[in-house]
C-alpha cells in the first residue's frame, strides 16, 4: 500500500563514499559519493569518458575501487565480486546490451530469476522430478514477468534473443534485470540508439515500473536530457571522474561548471 511519501529511512539503500579507481595514470573515478534511497531515481550524466559506466562497474562489483566504501542497506559490500553484489539485490543493464543471444527470450529472463537463487548442482540428478518442477515454476514466473512488461516479447518467448531489434534487446535486458527482484537497478543508457517515439515509450515504461515497484531505487546513466528532465528526482553530473554538481534537473542545468563541461568554455 502506498501511504503517501515514505519517511527518509535511517539507512539508505545505497551509500557510496569517496569512490576512486585508477587505470594506469588515469583516475577514471575520483572521490565520487552517491546516496540513493529506495524509490528514488537518480540520473547520472556527464560527457563521454567522464566515468559514468566505470562508476556503475564499481557499484556492481565488476571493478574493485582503489579507495572508498560502498554500503548497501547498511552493509559494507566494498570489494565483493559482482555475483555477490547481485545476490544482495543489485540488477543492471549494459550500454551495449549483453543478452544471451543464442538462448530464447524466455531463457534470458529465466536466468535473471535463477541466477540469484542458490544453485543446487546435483538436484537434477538426485531429485529430478522436484528440480524439473522448480524450473517449470521459475519459467512460468519468468513468462508472467514478460507478459507484464513486454507482451510483444512474451509472444515470441521461444525465439532466440538474437532475432530481436536493438530496442527490443534493451527492453528484454531490463526485464532480465527485473526478474531477479532487485532493490537497486542500474540502467546504463537505456535510451541509446532509440528514436524519439521509442524514447518516450521507454520513459513511460520506467514510470510504470516506479508505480508498480515503488520500493526500487534506480540509478540511470543518460545522455538524452528530455529523459533526465522527465524522470529524475535528482541529477548527478560527472566530469573527468569527479562529481561536479548534484541537485534537481533545474539546479544542475543552471550550474556554470556543468555548462562548461558540456559545451566547453
Amino acid at each position: 500500500m502506498l501511504d503517501g511519501l515514505s519517511p527518509l529511512q535511517p539507512t539508505p539503500l545505497l551509500s557510496a563514499e569517496d569512490l576512486t579507481i585508477r587505470f594506469g595514470g588515469l583516475t577514471a573515478v575520483d572521490g565520487v559519493s552517491l546516496r540513493l534511497e529506495g524509490g528514488e531515481l537518480v540520473a547520472i550524466i556527464g560527457p563521454n569518458g567522464s566515468g559514468k559506466t566505470t562508476l556503475f562497474n564499481i557499484l556492481n562489483g565488476i571493478y574493485r575501487p582503489h579507495a572508498g566504501r560502498i554500503l548497501l542497506k547498511g552493509e559494507d559490500v566494498t570489494g565483493l565480486p559482482a555475483d555477490q553484489i547481485a545476490r544482495r539485490g543489485v540488477g543492471r543493464t549494459f550500454q551495449i546490451s549483453r543478452l544471451f543471444l543464442d538462448l530464447s527470450v524466455l531463457d534470458n529472463v529465466l536466468l535473471g530469476r535463477v541466477g540469484t537463487n542458490r544453485l543446487a548442482w546435483l538436484a537434477p540428478l538426485l531429485r529430478p522430478k522436484q528440480a524439473a518442477e522448480e524450473l517449470a515454476d521459475h519459467a512460468a514466473r519468468a513468462y508472467a514477468l514478460l507478459e507484464e512488461w513486454a507482451p510483444d516479447l512474451a509472444a515470441r518467448c521461444y525465439r532466440p534473443a538474437r532475432e530481436l531489434t536493438l530496442v527490443e534487446r534493451r527492453r528484454l535486458e531490463i526485464c532480465r534485470a527485473l526478474a531477479s527482484d532487485p532493490d537497486l537497478l542500474l540502467l546504463d543508457e537505456p535510451s541509446a540508439g532509440m528514436d524519439a517515439r521509442e524514447t518516450r515509450e521507454l520513459m513511460e515504461e520506467i514510470r510504470r515500473l516506479r508505480v508498480r515497484r515503488p520500493e526500487i531505487g534506480i540509478a540511470l546513466i543518460e545522455h538524452d536530457m528530455s529523459v533526465v528532465r522527465g524522470l529524475a528526482d535528482r541529477v548527478v553530473v560527472l566530469n573527468y571522474g569527479r562529481k561536479i554538481a548534484e541537485g534537481t534537473f533545474d539546479e544542475v542545468a543552471a550550474s556554470r561548471e556543468v555548462r562548461e563541461a558540456y559545451l566547453g568554455t
Partner: peptide, 13 residues
C-alpha cells in the same frame, strides 16, 4: 557460453 560477465552480474558464481 554466451556471456560470462553477464552471467556473473546475474548473481552466478
Amino acid at each position: 557460453r554466451e556471456d560470462e560477465i553477464a552471467t556473473k552480474v546475474l548473481g552466478v558464481d
